[in-house]
């Protein structure tokens, strides 16, 4: 399990004349959990958006399985699950409709497992309630249900535990661990204290930031 999947080389990103990080290099192997750390405004979200391929305001190179990202985005997208600041949940649709939409976007999702996934995130009984009637935490859970469905190898999670209760966080930590054990990669940011300390590799952004 020491196959290097993701390589980041000399990443440099500048925002509004402020250098967020420079000369940031790291490699991620299959089965690793990586936590990006840093104070607010240190560029954690920016880094995750760059890694996911959403943002192209950077210099340096990112390679997935040895191929630069820009060369084959569709192939990369097939193996990527991105969980952003906004959960990507339509408030007028029900949790089930939301997940069915994700199943259409990512055809590897098995429609029959949607029920199970909603059950796993504690939304049983809320399948047919429009999401705007649910709480903030429940809305995040709708999106987190994708973790139970996805067959993507690389998970990029930006603050996945915001508004999630303690039990929920513990359950999701187990999912992250299980994902790592099946050879997946998790890259996440969170301000929660993770119980996974011994499994997590930390990358601190402050150490890589230049002076402006």
């Amino acid at each position: 399990m020491s196959e290097i999947l993701l390589e980041v080389e000399k990443l440099f990103c500048e925002r509004d004349d402020r250098v967020l990080f420079s000369d940031l290099s790291f490699q991620v192997q299959a089965g690793e959990l990586v936590q990006i750390e840093g104070p607010n405004g240190s560029g954690k979200t920016t880094l995750l958006r760059i890694l996911s391929g959403l943002s192209r305001h950077f210099e340096g190179e990112i390679r997935w399985r040895g191929v630069p990202l820009a060369d084959d985005l569709p192939a990369y997208a097939r193996e990527l699950l991105y969980f952003g600041h906004q959960a990507g949940v339509k408030s007028l649709l029900t949790p089930e409709e939301n997940l069915r939409w994700y199943a259409a976007l990512d055809t590897s999702i098995d429609l029959e497992q949607i029920d199970q996934a909603l059950n796993a995130v504690g939304l049983k009984g809320f399948e047919d309630v429009p999401c705007h009637m649910l709480s903030a935490g429940q809305n995040r859970r709708v999106s987190l249900a994708r973790l139970y469905l996805s067959q993507a190898r690389l998970w990029i999670l930006d603050e996945p535990f915001t508004a999630i209760d303690k039990q929920g966080v513990a359950a999701k930590e187990n999912v992250l661990l299980a994902h790592a054990q099946r050879g997946g990669i998790v890259i996440l940011t969170t301000h929660h204290e993770l119980n996974l300390t011994q499994h997590v590799r930390r990358i601190h952004l402050d150490e890589h930031s230049g002076t402006s």
Binding site: S52, L54, A77, G84, G88, L105
Partner: peptide
């Protein structure tokens, strides 16, 4: 755009 669905569309392999 506001609720993040757009990001998911952009990142979809479809």
């Amino acid at each position: 755009f506001d609720d993040g669905s757009l990001e998911q569309m952009l990142l979809s392999p479809q």
